[in-house]
Amino acid sequence: MVPHPFRVERVQRETADTFTLTLEPAAAGIEIRYRPGQFNMLYLFGVGEVPISVSGDAASPVPLLHTVRVAGAVTRGICELGRGGTVGVRGPYGTPWPVEQAEGSDLLVIAGGIGLAPLRSVVYHLMAHREKYGRVAILYGTRSPDDLLYRSEVEQWRGRFDLDVDVTVDHAGLNWHGRVGVVTTLIQQAQFDPDNTVAMVCGPEIMMRFCVRELEDQGVDLGDIHISMERNMKCAVGFCGHCQFGPEFICKDGPVFSYQRIADLLDVREV
């Protein structure tokens, strides 16, 4: 429940307002072993704490990688720390993506905007265990070419013969030669067997709703669609009550849920 100091080893600018921090524990003996989809609470000394998904390779938990978007005082401060700065970290918290349960199935990894950050851990996992999955498609939509996360890495994934990687942007100028259109259009094009597919979707809630509708139209079972939810969080352990979503605590029952489990709640406004 108390943050451990971690040293910022590297700050990588991803987009105009998004940065990836490489963090090493400041003291010996601290190691945060996590599973893809889990999150940590990042603490900026004296300012505050925010939940941020881990976006590294869970198989090598040191250093920790967190992709942070500047959204408020804490995230701004964290992104401005620079190499040598200190961030408090506690975690990991929450439910992971069901990467083991998905073995033997086709896999759709669908990311919108910064939603690629928690799914990057999934991509690392499935590349390391590629033989355990059927066809794998990574579908990524974002606002504009300038908002693409991990751009060179996504290009590398795209170069692999065993991954179908498709990227689309909502808006583009003339220097963009890729797809333009919303991320749901990629689902229509993707190759998968709807009867044996697990989909992991992460992005803004509206984007996830549209994707789920498209997946459902394509015949994917709602129980095989998993989404990662976001709500206000103060404690990350189910005590503060802020992240309640009907009977669910996003921090401990989620953030990753099977769509089926929360479908009814998603239909109610302001739950």
């Binding site: 978007r69 500047v70 919108g112 905007g113 909502d170 749901t184 992005g203």
Partner: peptide, 16 residues
């Protein structure tokens, strides 16, 4: 799809 693009769902978040 036009609505979804118009909503600019990945849009830049409010600065607090």
């Amino acid at each position: 799809r036009a609505e979804l693009q118009l909503l600019d769902v990945y849009g830049h978040v409010a600065q607090v």
